[in-house]
Amino acid sequence: MRRERLKKMAVWKFASCDGCQLSLLDCEDELLTLAGKIKIAHFIEASRAVMRGPYDLSLVEGSITTPDDAERIKEVRRESRTLITIGACATSGGIQALRNFADVREFTSIVYARPEYIHTLAQSTGIADHVKVDFELRGCPINKRQLLEVILAFLKGRRPNIASESVCVECKARGNICIAVAKGVACMGPVTQAGCGAICPAYDRGCYGCFGPKEHANVNSLRADWSEQKGLSPLAMERLFHTFHAWAEPFRQAGLAAKQDLTPEIQRIEAECE
């Protein structure tokens, strides 16, 4: 019987913290089995051995923030039959997309003594802004169980079974008492996609939205509840929407809407930072 050729997988990194690709190495129980089912052809963090493309599956971590990377992602796409992004940076630009609301030259001069040595783009953007993406796995970081499901589904040639419901659904399933109702905590669960296992409410804190906006997220209703029922300041609301998925459309808009109500407060802070 002829042995079937193992499919080739590559892991790529753009601007990111490495946490999502680390999730692959964190699959301690499955890693060696997985290595027997798919050829890990390019995974620089884990191996010196690099096989040339094309690759059957590429996992892409990180956001596009430099002119070179904007070119490199196109090459990765050309070499990849299926391209799946992993994590918040690759989905919506990640936390480094906070620069998109500011002047990046000013940012450079805050961090670096010689800003002229630094080459960077004005915006940090997700991969789908640059090339076609076949599937986006959410999370900051991704959930490793979901990552395994995505790889397995790819190997079987089926759609990954990844829920697109809100964190609230997971939270109920876990048997948590709703902290937004019971404790009046500002929780982003209602507008955030499930996948984490509702860990924040399980640890007595509000969800902070690290899996990004769920489909049809009703951010305006949540903002109204926060403002009217929970007495949150516009600044607190802006910060909640503008952290790990600040550049994802519903969160971007909601944060900007909150910000409109707080221009005087922002001016005060900017003056103090000077």
Binding site: F14, A15, T65, T66, D69, I95, Q96, L98, R99, A102, V104, E106, F107, T108, I110, V111, Y112, I118, T120
Partner: peptide, 8 residues
């Protein structure tokens, strides 16, 4: 790539 944490 620089990510500018200290700035934001």
């Amino acid at each position: 790539p620089p990510r500018f944490f200290e700035a934001f």
